[in-house]
Nucleic acid binder design. Sequence first.
DNA 1: GCAAAAGTGTTACGAATACACCCATGA
DNA 2: TCATGGGTGTATTCGTAACACTTTTGC
Lengths: 238, 238
Amino acid sequence: MKIPKQYENIDRFPVALDAIIFGFDRENLKLLLIKRDFEPKKGEWSLMGGFLKSDESLDEAASRILANLTGLKNIYLEQLYGFGEIDRDPVERTISIAYYSLINIHDHNKELVKQFSARWFPIDVLPDLIFDHLKMVEAAKARLRYKAARQPVGFELLPEKFTLPELQQLYESIYETDLDKRNFRRRILSMGVLVKTNEKQKGFSKKGAYLYRFDKNKFDMLNSPSNGAGLSFKPPNI
Amino acid sequence: MKIPKQYENIDRFPVALDAIIFGFDRENLKLLLIKRDFEPKKGEWSLMGGFLKSDESLDEAASRILANLTGLKNIYLEQLYGFGEIDRDPVERTISIAYYSLINIHDHNKELVKQFSARWFPIDVLPDLIFDHLKMVEAAKARLRYKAARQPVGFELLPEKFTLPELQQLYESIYETDLDKRNFRRRILSMGVLVKTNEKQKGFSKKGAYLYRFDKNKFDMLNSPSNGAGLSFKPPNI
DNA sequence: GCAAAAGTGTTACGAATACACCCATGA
DNA sequence: TCATGGGTGTATTCGTAACACTTTTGC
């Protein structure tokens, strides 16, 4: 096919993907950051990133980049925003599409993480970040809050079985607020997507809390028949 | 500065911006589409678009492209999503950042619109669109619903003075639903960002409806002192 | 005078909030 | 036995939804 003139003399740019990787360690919401090992800004903290290749879509590229650091595939990953200020990257004019992902913090490749000199940071005590990465993180926090209020994404951050106090702690971290135990349990259980197991968590508290499991089938059932915005997990009032 | 090796051998891509342009003609929510005048897909309907240049940010480029078609500057414009499927553009691998904008439908350059063979289409009777532009439109509709439920963006689509029945009609178009007149008026007025004028609209109804004006100062006041998500215009229950 | 749209209040319901005590267990 | 965290129910408040008649005026 002849190339139309509208495609001649146009600028072409490197397209970066940067990943905001959330994890939860049963206490704090955390971000996985890497220590950059090349100039510029060598040695400073950064989001994991990489450049788009021509044989992959944006989603595939983001997924590849996430796997490069964590070894994980099929992870919750959502596009966040495109950042394109002219001078955002001092080396070359670059645009970056930020993605955020939710992973189980215990469930990733420690070896890779070591190679990248990566570390988990509590979301409210982050180091300085290069370029516009802090803006990306802020956008991701806002999006996670929006998302978690509407869909039960919290489960992506937890192990398969978890207790209600753990789940509540997660939501409290996401919204940086305290929630009433009784109201929280009522709301969550009334959604009907949690299944109580007969097992109790041992070791943490004396009494032990029941373990629950997220029932993806029930969720899909409730969610699929064009339920408008899907089942709603109401946002806690901040 | 020496170029780090991480920036060598990377692919570079044309970055397109596509604009979903909403308008409202006191009856229907509409989209401004252009008839493409070059191959491929010459003669088919398309969103207004263009390519990023190296001396402008993404926002600036989107703004320029919007002005190319409408002649308007300083318009409500918000980034929507980055589209990057490999084969989305048959000519060349291109990524596109979609923006949506809200304009007053009577307030644009008719000459330019004619040059582009552009036309306003009711949002629910769109022609076939090229590439992935329909996906972009769907995303924009969803975003507008989200946005309008939280911030009074509706005013961007109306003339300076408008009646409450007109405003209600706009919201009904956005949400494709009927709203109760009394509840709507109460909700809108309780936000305290509308100022009633002494003028009545003539010509449309026999009785005539009072004209209101959006009070941007009050809005900024209510919105600025870190009011969480800002003043909330609750979403109509769909 | 009548058709057509504008304008106006009240009640009922459901959701969210606030709130305090008992239970199970390990140390 | 006591300290620690887990588990439970109810009353109140507030916001949302449902609903029907009067007013104005051009024709």
